[in-house]
Amino acid sequence: MNNFDFQNPTRILFGEGTLAKLGQEAAAYGSKVLLMYGGGSIKRTGLYDNVTAQLRERGIEVFEVGGVEPNPRLSTVRKAIEISRANGVQFILAVGGGSAIDAAKAVAIGVPYEGDVWDFFVQKAQAKSALPLGTVLTLSATGTEMNGNTVITNWEENLKKGYGSLHAYPKFSILDPTLTYTVPADQTMNGTVDMMTHVFEQYFSLTPDTPLQERMCESVLQTVIENAESALANPEDYVARANLMLCGTYALNGGFISVGMRGDWASHGIEHEVSGIYDIPHGTGLAIIYPNWMKYVYRERIERFAQYAVRVWKVNPDGKTDEEVALAGIQATRDFFTRIGAPSKLSEVGVGDEKIDVMAAEAVRFGPIGSFKKLNKDDVAEIYRMSL
């Protein structure tokens, strides 16, 4: 196990009815708020009216940027920064899923920065401060409600890049599972894949002597598997929705389940290049790419993949080699993704081989990626080809 320094400053208000606490929480951070949200579902469900009423009851002036894209655009972030600066906004509030929250984080760190916010994403600058940020989560997926990560797409350059900073952690996040009842099946699928792959990125590690962390990762994966299909079959199953919501938060909140372990994260970088060009949902891309990354790298530490197969998927190891067990676990992963409605090939979502070299080159723009197995351009290109 490696040494570690773990800090997570986000306050979580979890459970049915916690939305009622929003006005009180927001009022602690100022009298002018920028509200950011996605395509408008919060207006159809009445959530928008609830949120704005609570804010105005507290005397908070509300400015808005709606229509945040599923792969949030740099142009939207820049627009929101301009609005915030022009109106003296003191607090950012994101209502929605990972896209709305990621965009709001970029705005929060971008407002006090004198340069262009894209500088953070291309490693030209580091955030030194941020406006305070709060979130109301409506989609269980990314864990962005309790971490400092943000991913933004520069559509003009077809680049999708992530950035992380302690300054970007939300001050508070409201997690009411009933707000996810209206999430469509495809988004529930994408969220399920996303949270599982977040755990994978930490679990498939070369760091030795981490039994507690491994079992925490395995328990999150098992809980997701046990609840995802129930949520898809009955969208208003509170128990399933609550368990998925908590799993999404635990899967990626600054390293809680993997402190002392070195994660990999190559697959996320590989997928970002696909969705940065083709604008497919992040979870969909990961569902296609991650099992192929597994097949490409599993021999680097075959015993970890065998352990995963036995503990998570209950593969019977009797009479089998570690390789056979490991491959059975990888296949079980692929089968589960298919069972919850995820595609298995890039060709199914309109992605061909014409941009493989471009995507592979950009994925390793700053050098080889991954730690479980270091991947160069040729490795990444091969994983893309395996995914076609």
Rank of each mutant, 00 (worst) to 15 (best):
M146D: 11
S31K: 15
I42H: 11
Y278I: 00
V224H: 02
G191K: 04
I277L: 13
S371V: 01
F120Q: 07
N190R: 08
I12R: 08
G23A: 06
A125H: 05
S219C: 12
K128G: 14
D237Q: 11
I270S: 10
M359S: 06
T45R: 14
R11L: 08
T333M: 09
S75C: 08
V77R: 03
E61F: 07
V89A: 08
T210H: 10
E201K: 04
E201T: 11
A361M: 11
L74P: 04
G23E: 09
L19V: 10
I289F: 09
D5E: 14
I289G: 06
G110W: 01
M36Q: 13
Q123R: 15
G39T: 03
V325N: 01
D379W: 01
V312C: 09
G162L: 11
K124G: 13
I152S: 01
T249W: 04
V297N: 05
Q126S: 15
V325A: 04
A309F: 02
T142N: 12
F63D: 03
S84M: 07
A326H: 05
D279V: 05
P112W: 03
K21S: 15
K295C: 08
E323C: 04
E218Y: 11
R78D: 13
V274C: 10
M195D: 11
G115R: 12
T182Y: 09
Y37K: 06
T333D: 01
L19G: 08
D186P: 00
E157P: 02
D116T: 01
Y203F: 14
W293I: 09
P184V: 07
T138A: 10
G285F: 11
A94H: 10
D378V: 11
N316G: 11
R299V: 10
Q123S: 15
Q7A: 13
M294H: 13
K320D: 03
E25P: 11
G15E: 12
N376M: 01
L388P: 00
G39C: 04
T182V: 13
K21W: 07
I257C: 07
T188H: 00
E271H: 08
G319Y: 03
V312W: 01
A328Y: 06
P281E: 07
P170F: 06
V310Q: 15
W265K: 12
K377I: 13
G162R: 13
A26R: 02
V239M: 14
N87T: 04
M386I: 02
P343Q: 00
S75A: 15
T188K: 09
V107R: 02
P132R: 07
D176W: 00
G39K: 07
K161I: 05
T207L: 06
A309S: 14
A127N: 10
V259L: 06
G148R: 03
M36G: 10
A103R: 03
A361Q: 15
D379G: 09
P184A: 09
G329W: 06
L93P: 07
M189C: 15
I60W: 02
A20N: 15
Q213Y: 06
Y203D: 05
I83E: 07
L286K: 01
F204T: 09
F366H: 12
S387N: 07
E157L: 14
H268T: 06
E362P: 01
L137I: 14
S173E: 12
R339N: 14
I81V: 13
A100C: 13
D5K: 13
D379F: 03
V107F: 02
R301S: 08
L206Y: 05
N243F: 01
S99N: 04
G248M: 08
R301V: 00
E114V: 11
H272Q: 14
L137Y: 00
W293Q: 07
I356P: 02
